[in-house]
């Protein structure tokens, strides 16, 4: 329905038009979505599940769910809130599953060689600092904030916390991170 306005334009942002294209089965739009936010879904899920395998699964499940259910999206300009709420649901589901007796999930140790895929030392340090020094909620705020184009208002909706709290917690988290990263090249 909104296809007419969207089809000539190459997607640059994750917006309602992009979701409309995905709903129409447009793979190019879907690939753009992957490139734009897969890593953020991963980081967000990691802060909840604490497990790289689960986070990987959540990325896949979330994006497939978005593809399959984009036609039901009625977000009025808040596609991120919709997508990340789905990601949150999947993450919580994985969290429940990982508490089973004898479960394999949760076996993977992130602190060990889990982060070895990241080649640059500084980038690895940032992720490590996020996971080690921030509370779960701070982690989620930072991970969501790192999504290009995500608004604080959307973060507040996804996490069910007031806008003011998002802002203050975000700034406090950044301060903590900068302190932790002192010596690296980050300046105020």
């Amino acid at each position: 329905m909104e296809q007419n306005t969207a089809k000539t334009e190459y997607p640059k942002v994750v917006d309602d038009a992009l979701l409309a294209r995905i709903a129409a089965g447009d793979r190019e739009a879907f690939h753009f979505l992957y490139q734009a936010i897969a890593q953020n879904i991963y980081g967000f899920s990691l802060s909840i599940t604490k497990n790289p395998h689960d986070a990987e699964d959540v990325v896949q499940e979330t994006l497939l769910a978005v593809y399959r259910h984009a036609h039901t999206y009625r977000g009025q300009g808040k596609p991120m809130a919709w997508i990340f709420t789905i990601a949150r649901n999947f993450s919580l589901k994985h969290l429940q599953l990982s508490r089973r007796v004898d479960s394999l999930d949760g076996l993977q140790d992130l602190e060990g060689d889990g982060l070895s895929r990241i080649s640059a030392v500084e980038q690895r340090m940032v992720l490590q600092a996020v996971l080690r020094t921030l509370s779960e909620q701070e982690q989620q705020i930072v991970m969501l904030h790192a999504v290009h184009g995500m608004k604080n208002r959307e973060i507040s909706e996804i996490l069910h916390i007031p806008l003011n709290t998002v802002l203050s917690k975000y700034h406090r988290a950044l301060k903590k991170l900068r302190k932790q990263m002192e010596g690296a090249h980050y300046d105020e």
Partner: peptide, 8 residues
């Protein structure tokens, strides 16, 4: 952070 996550 985004680059690091992408590599994960």
């Amino acid at each position: 952070l985004n680059t690091a996550l992408k590599q994960m």
